[in-house]
């Protein structure tokens, strides 16, 4: 019997062991000697668009696209070395830094934002908004006193909520804060009329806005939140010369993407509908909101990012006030053709 138990037990351990090994994204070189980059995006549309644009064709690098939803999964995948670039909002690293056990310095910061992008600052396609239900009787933030206000914790949606409160001369004690696990749930609650006012993404509430059930009272330019999409790299990836060179080529080629996006609206929208299962109105919006250019990590941007950190800190969303500049590495700005916010405004 003892022998039997031992062998059964060994089998179990073996099975567990088998499932434990393998699986990690191979961070080494591709089969043909080209450097491999494992890059995450939070949906499957951008990778499909990049492929359709052909900007990476003939590149001396292999890109493996990974689909990870939400900042937490991206950060975990970065830390576990499963990916080289993680996709998140520009505030995620600020929060990560503020929650870190050890203070980040320019030398020991484990992660660096290496690319940030967004569309022009057209209020009609502002990615980030504070909106109200029209039947709530709220026309400006100050009216929100005693009302239910939906948001989700962390990230720039949270910043939009906190800055909106400040602009209305309110504190969280004046309203009924209603916190959700993620942006999609928060938006769903607003769309269903469960909350009166909402801070978060513009796209998810498009239907309510179109039907007249909701209207925007503050966009991100009014709250001065950069609301960038960013790619974050692990420090050791940046220190790896081969990877560094590959990233440089990747971003140089990516700088050509935006023009293709502008020139091929129909193809872009078709891919958006296919990948995201959105209706035409949402596809039109997503087309606009996904236009843009890489943004330069200049003093102007960093000042805005620092102000967001301050708002989060004042609103007790983060336990300490980080120096956000530590988390931005501008080394690829030049090859990205990154533009300053001022230039973006001017181009509008």
């Amino acid at each position: 019997m003892r022998k039997l138990i031992a062998s059964l037990f060994a089998t179990t351990l073996l099975a567990a062991g088998l499932s434990a090994c393998g699986g990690d994204a191979d961070a080494g070189s591709g089969s043909d000697g080209a450097t491999k980059l494992t890059i995450s995006y939070q949906d499957t549309a951008f990778p499909a668009l990049i492929e359709a644009s052909g900007v990476l064709d003939g590149a001396d690098l292999d890109v493996e696209w990974v689909n990870l939803t939400g900042p937490a999964a991206n950060l975990q995948a970065l830390y576990s070395k499963a990916i080289d670039l993680g996709h998140m909002g520009d505030t995620s690293l600020t929060i990560e830094q503020a929650n870190s056990k050890t203070d980040w310095t320019a030398d020991n910061a484990p992660l660096e934002i290496v690319a940030g992008w967004r569309n022009g600052n057209d209020p009609e396609f502002s990615p980030l908004v504070t909106a109200v239900r029209t039947d709530s009787g709220i026309t400006e933030v100050a009216d929100a006193k005693g009302k239910k206000w939906g948001f989700n914790f962390g990230g720039y949606n949270h910043a939009q909520y906190l800055v909106s409160l400040v602009q209305g001369g309110l504190t969280e004690d004046d309203i009924e804060p209603t916190q959700f696990a993620d942006g999609a749930t928060s938006a769903a609650a607003f769309n269903a009329g469960e909350v009166d006012i909402y801070s978060g993404g513009h796209g998810p509430i498009l239907g309510a806005l179109a039907s007249g059930d909701a209207e925007i009272i503050l966009d991100d330019s009014q709250t001065a939140i950069p609301a960038l999409n960013v790619w974050t790299a692990r420090k050791d990836v940046l220190d790896d010369e081969e990877k560094d060179a590959a990233l440089e080529e990747f971003f140089e080629r990516m700088s050509g993407y935006w023009a293709w996006h502008d020139e091929n609206p129909e193809e872009v929208k078709k891919i958006l509908v296919e990948q995201l299962k959105v209706d035409d109105a949402r596809a039109d919006f997503e087309y606009e909101v996904r236009r843009g250019a890489f943004r330069a990590f200049d003093d102007g941007l960093l000042a805005e990012e620092q102000a967001v950190a301050q708002a989060l800190f004042d609103g007790k969303a983060i336990p300490k006030l980080p120096e956000v500049g530590i988390g931005f590495d501008p080394r690829y700005n030049e090859v990205q053709g990154a533009i300053s916010s001022a230039d973006a405004q001017a181009a509008q």
Binding site: S19, A20, C21, G22, G23, D24, A25, V66, L68, A72, A73, Q76, A77, Y79, S80, A82, I83
Partner: peptide, 17 residues
Amino acid sequence: VPLFVVWFGIGETSKVA
């Protein structure tokens, strides 16, 4: 889910695990 990403990566292994 987040822990499984750390332990088993982001391939099939973590999903099956």
